[in-house]
Design a protein around this nucleic acid. Structure first.
Length: 139
DNA sequence: GCCAACGTTGGC
DNA sequence: GCCAACGTTGGC
């Protein structure tokens, strides 16, 4: 089991949109690093959902339900998508500001590389963020 | 809205 | 295959 973080602009596709739709194809990734991370995702991996540009906070957790396959929205190039479903909205969103202020989260790529839209998250970072959000997954 | 950081493109 | 120019992302 691995853990990830994906970014989305909430005015384009927010966590609320995922909750409304119940499931989505994570399309539109056009960056090789991000794509390779998508391809490394396995079914049942858990993914933090982060709102970029507006909000600037981790708002929820989702889960990979289908491993990578070709991105049907790509007109050319070798791009991939995965399918995800919402798992749980965080009780308290964890802001980027808070992440940056938390010593043990300094190694997260989001702190150093603001442009990567799909990134791996260490297990202990993942659970630290859940703890900070006062959210339990086991239900 | 600005601009830093990062990626991509294309001339050589 | 280097690197300058350009484009995009996303924090501020």
């Amino acid at each position: 089991m691995k853990y990830w973080l994906v970014k989305s602009e909430p005015f384009k596709y927010g966590y609320h949109t995922l909750e409304e739709e119940g499931r989505t194809m994570w399309d539109g990734v056009r960056n090789y690093g991000a794509r390779n991370n998508l391809r490394a995702m396995k079914e049942n991996d858990l993914v933090l959902f982060y709102h970029s540009r507006e909000g600037l906070e981790v708002v929820g957790v989702c889960k990979v339900v289908k491993e990578f396959y070709p991105d049907p929205t790509a007109e050319k190039g070798d791009w991939s998508v995965v399918d995800v479903v919402p798992v749980k909205r965080l009780n308290k969103p964890v802001t980027l500001k808070t992440i940056k202020a938390t010593e043990e989260l300094q190694d997260m790529p989001i702190v150093k590389n603001s442009r990567l839209s799909v990134m791996p998250v260490d297990e202990h970072h993942f659970f630290k963020i859940l703890e900070m959000s006062e959210t339990e997954l086991s239900d």
